[in-house]
Amino acid sequence: MSIKHGLLALLERGPMHGYQLKTAFEESTGGTWPLNIGQVYTTLGRLERDGLVESLPEHDGQREYEITDAGRAELAMWFATPVSRTDRPRDELTIKLALAVATPGVDVRAVLQGQRTATVRTMQEYTRLKASSDKRSDLSWRLVVEAMLFQAEAEIRWLDHCETTLARYQPETPAAAVPTPEPGQTAPDRTAPAGTAPERTARKAGRR
C-alpha cells in the first residue's frame, strides 16, 4: 500500500489541503501510520505530475487539491486489486523459528511459548482498546484494531500448529523438542538466531 492511494481515497470525499489530508489519513488508519507533512506534499506533487490530482487556486494561504477522473480510475483499480502477501515468508518470526529448529541447544517449545504469551498480551491490549472505544462511531478505526486482532490470532494459531507439528515430528523426546544433528552433520552457527529469546526461555524451561 502506498500513501498515494490513501490520499486519493481521502480526496474522493472532497478537496482538502495538505494538513487536512495528514490528519484525515491518520484518523482513518487508527493512528497506526503517522505521516509527516513533508511526505504528504511530496506525494501530492507526484500525484499532480501524474495527472491524478489537481491543485486549486490558493485560498487564505492554503492550497487545496482535488481528485481528477484519472485519479478516480486509479483509486477504483486499487480497491479492485487484491493485496499481495508475498513478503510474508520474510517475516522475522518465521525466520527465527526456522532457525530455532535447525540450531542445537534451542528449546523450541519455549521459544514458541515466549512468543505466544507476548502475542496474547498484545491481543489483550488491543481488546481493551476496542472495548473502550464502543462509544466511538468511527468504523474505520475499529476495523483497523480488529485487523490487528485477527492478524495476531492467526499468529497464535500458527504457533499452536508449529508446536503440534514439532511434537509429532519427534514423538520419542517430546520434552526436549530440540532436534539433535545427525552424526556427521555440521551444526549450524549457534549465534544465528536472536540471542534473547532462547536465553529467556531457557530460564522458563528451568522453572518447569
Binding site: 502475542t119 496474547v120 491481543m123 489483550q124 488491543y126 481488546t127 472495548a131 486482532l149 485477527f150 495476531a152 490470532e153 497464535i156 494459531r157 499452536d160
Partner: peptide, 9 residues
C-alpha cells in the same frame, strides 16, 4: 482455544 476470546481476559 481462541486467542481472540482470551484477549478479553
Amino acid at each position: 482455544h481462541e486467542a481472540r476470546h482470551a484477549g478479553w481476559a
